[in-house]
Measured scan of single mutants.
Amino acid sequence: TEEYEYTDEQQAREAAREWREKGYTVTIEEHNGRWRVKTG
């Protein structure tokens, strides 16, 4: 599992979409105004 943090929701969603296209399972969670994208 890798985790990436973004301050911008749009960036987080874009990144998540790219990971999904590569076949990863992706979770996005908002935490204190930051967006965490977890792949695994």
Rank of each mutant, 00 (worst) to 15 (best):
T1G: 13
T1H: 13
T1Y: 14
T1Q: 12
T1A: 12
T1R: 10
T1K: 10
T1P: 13
T1L: 13
T1C: 09
E2K: 14
E2P: 09
E2V: 14
E2T: 14
E2W: 15
E2R: 14
E3W: 15
E3S: 11
E3G: 08
E3P: 07
E3D: 09
E3R: 07
E3V: 15
E3I: 15
Y4N: 06
Y4I: 08
Y4G: 05
Y4L: 08
Y4E: 08
Y4W: 13
Y4H: 08
Y4R: 08
Y4D: 05
E5M: 10
E5N: 06
E5F: 14
E5V: 11
E5K: 04
E5W: 15
E5Y: 15
E5R: 05
E5H: 08
Y6A: 02
Y6T: 03
Y6S: 02
Y6F: 14
Y6P: 01
Y6L: 03
Y6D: 01
Y6K: 01
Y6W: 05
Y6C: 03
T7P: 13
T7G: 11
T7Y: 11
T7F: 12
T7V: 11
T7M: 13
T7K: 08
T7R: 08
T7S: 12
D8S: 13
D8H: 06
D8P: 00
D8A: 04
D8R: 04
D8T: 14
D8F: 05
D8N: 12
D8Y: 06
E9A: 07
E9W: 09
E9R: 05
E9L: 12
E9N: 03
E9K: 05
E9Q: 06
E9S: 04
Q10L: 12
Q10T: 11
Q10P: 05
Q10D: 12
Q10K: 12
Q10R: 11
Q10H: 12
Q10M: 12
Q11L: 10
Q11Y: 05
Q11A: 14
Q11H: 08
Q11F: 06
Q11D: 12
Q11G: 07
Q11I: 08
Q11P: 03
A12L: 02
A12F: 01
A12H: 00
A12K: 00
A12C: 04
A12S: 02
A12Y: 01
A12E: 00
A12I: 01
A12P: 00
A12W: 01
A12M: 03
A12V: 03
R13G: 04
R13N: 10
R13E: 10
R13F: 10
R13K: 11
R13M: 13
R13C: 05
R13H: 11
R13D: 05
R13P: 00
R13V: 10
E14C: 05
E14W: 06
E14K: 10
E14Y: 06
E14M: 08
E14F: 06
E14T: 09
E14D: 12
E14R: 09
E14S: 08
A15Y: 05
A15P: 00
A15S: 07
A15Q: 07
A15M: 07
A15N: 04
A15C: 08
A15R: 06
A15L: 05
A15V: 09
A15H: 07
A15F: 07
A16Q: 03
A16H: 03
A16T: 03
A16L: 05
A16S: 04
A16P: 00
A16M: 08
A16E: 04
A16K: 02
A16Y: 07
A16N: 01
A16F: 06
A16V: 08
R17V: 07
R17A: 12
R17Y: 07
R17D: 09
R17K: 12
R17G: 05
R17E: 11
R17L: 08
E18W: 14
E18K: 13
E18L: 14
E18H: 13
E18C: 12
E18N: 10
E18M: 14
E18R: 13
W19R: 03
W19F: 12
W19H: 03
W19V: 02
W19M: 08
W19N: 02
W19S: 02
W19P: 01
W19D: 01
W19C: 03
R20K: 10
R20Y: 09
R20I: 13
R20N: 06
R20E: 14
R20Q: 13
R20F: 10
R20L: 13
E21F: 06
E21K: 11
E21H: 07
E21M: 09
E21A: 11
E21P: 01
E21S: 10
E21R: 10
E21L: 11
E21T: 07
E21Q: 10
K22R: 11
K22G: 04
K22S: 05
K22A: 08
K22I: 04
K22V: 03
K22D: 03
K22W: 06
K22N: 05
K22E: 04
K22F: 04
G23F: 02
G23V: 01
G23P: 00
G23S: 02
G23E: 02
G23A: 02
Y24K: 04
Y24I: 06
Y24N: 03
Y24Q: 04
Y24P: 00
Y24R: 04
Y24E: 03
Y24G: 02
Y24V: 06
Y24L: 07
Y24S: 02
T25D: 10
T25S: 11
T25M: 10
T25W: 14
T25I: 13
T25F: 13
T25N: 11
T25G: 05
T25Y: 13
V26N: 01
V26A: 07
V26D: 00
V26I: 05
V26M: 02
V26S: 03
V26T: 06
V26Y: 02
V26E: 00
T27K: 07
T27W: 13
T27M: 08
T27V: 12
T27N: 06
T27I: 12
T27Q: 08
T27S: 10
T27F: 09
T27G: 03
I28L: 09
I28E: 02
I28F: 04
I28N: 01
I28D: 00
I28Q: 01
I28G: 00
I28M: 06
I28T: 03
I28P: 00
I28Y: 03
E29R: 08
E29G: 04
E29I: 12
E29H: 09
E29W: 13
E29N: 06
E30W: 14
E30D: 05
E30I: 09
E30C: 06
E30M: 12
E30H: 12
E30A: 08
E30F: 15
E30T: 07
H31E: 10
H31Y: 12
H31Q: 09
H31A: 09
H31I: 14
H31N: 09
H31T: 08
H31F: 12
N32G: 09
N32P: 03
N32V: 03
N32D: 11
N32W: 04
N32I: 03
N32H: 08
N32F: 07
G33L: 03
G33R: 03
G33N: 05
G33M: 03
G33D: 04
G33E: 03
G33S: 04
G33K: 04
G33F: 03
G33V: 01
G33A: 03
G33Y: 02
R34I: 15
R34M: 13
R34A: 10
R34L: 13
R34E: 05
R34K: 13
R34H: 09
R34N: 08
R34F: 13
R34V: 15
W35R: 00
W35V: 01
W35N: 00
W35Y: 07
W35Q: 00
W35K: 00
W35E: 00
W35P: 00
R36A: 08
R36P: 01
R36G: 04
R36V: 15
R36E: 05
R36I: 15
R36D: 03
R36H: 14
R36W: 15
V37I: 11
V37K: 00
V37W: 02
V37D: 00
V37Y: 02
V37N: 01
K38S: 10
K38N: 09
K38R: 12
K38L: 12
K38P: 02
K38M: 10
K38E: 06
K38W: 09
K38G: 04
T39Y: 12
T39F: 15
T39H: 10
T39A: 11
T39L: 15
T39W: 15
T39E: 04
G40W: 15
G40H: 15
G40Q: 15
G40I: 15
G40M: 15
G40L: 14
G40F: 15
G40T: 15
G40C: 06
